[in-house]
Design a protein around this nucleic acid. Structure first.
Length: 226
DNA sequence: CCTTGATCATGC
DNA sequence: GCATGATCAAGG
């Protein structure tokens, strides 16, 4: 995505919020025009476009590294597609699931915890009845997990990672996990990656990702955007 | 209508 | 292939 001018990386949360506030109420078409870009005709071939546009507008820097989008202030950016009744339309991708056994892996050292420790949530209209370019950005809010959310996330993460370390990745379905689930995250269903196995021999399985359930992000909306 | 499993684009 | 940004689309 090339553009006239990317925003400099924010050095404070206030700067980030101020920048996000200036996007609120604007349509994708307006924002794209200001950035010297064109809105894709078909979102099915540009699934991550809104997120990438918002990264440019807000000065995200992490690129494709497993680090927070705003490196100086340790904040992750997540767009949140909202349907016609104000609920999240899709689950939220968090990060890739590590499938090989690694030393000293713990919740406190996990990528899931790091990424979710501080998040700028940016609601975006996503109802099918609204033309893609006419969809508006909503009011962003900064979030950190409260005690209950942290417990739920840690419990799910631990349970899922325990299964992986036991070589049981192929027993994990998307129904595991109260708030955090594991689902495929691959180029297609034939993709393979190395995984731990019960015998300790290397195995191969479909690459997976951690996702937040829509019930979880809906709760965030009611807590912060209500 | 919602969830699950599958998929699209991009940079290394 | 892996990690980022996610949504699509079939079936329950």
């Amino acid at each position: 995505m090339s553009t006239y001018s990317a925003t400099p990386p924010p050095r404070s949360e206030k700067t980030l919020i101020d920048n996000a506030d200036r996007l609120a109420g604007k349509t994708l078409r307006q924002i794209a025009y200001e950035m010297g870009l064109t809105v894709p005709a078909d979102q099915s071939h540009a699934k991550g476009w809104i997120g990438e546009l918002m990264e440019l507008c807000l000065g995200a820097t992490a690129s494709s590294r497993p680090e927070p989008d705003f490196q100086y202030i340790g904040v992750e950016l997540k767009t949140l597609p909202i349907n016609h009744i104000g609920k999240p339309k899709e689950s939220t991708y968090v990060c890739t699931v590590p499938l090989t056994v690694e030393a000293d892996i713990s919740w406190s050292g996990s990528v899931v915890k790091r990424k979710l420790s501080r998040v700028l949530w940016l609601p975006v209209e996503a109802d099918a009845s609204i033309e893609f370019a006419q969809r508006r950005i909503g009011s962003a809010f900064l979030w950190s997990p409260d005690a209950q959310q942290e417990t739920d996330l840690r419990t799910d993460w631990q349970e899922l990672m325990d299964m992986i370390h036991m070589g049981e990745i192929d027993k994990i379905s998307s129904q595991h996990g109260k708030v955090l689930q594991i689902r495929p995250k691959a180029v297609n269903a034939r993709a393979l990656t190395k995984t731990a196995t019960a015998t300790g021999e290397p195995g191969f399985t479909l690459p997976r990702g951690f996702y937040l359930r829509t019930s979880f992000t809906h709760n965030l909306l009611t807590m912060y955007a209500g």
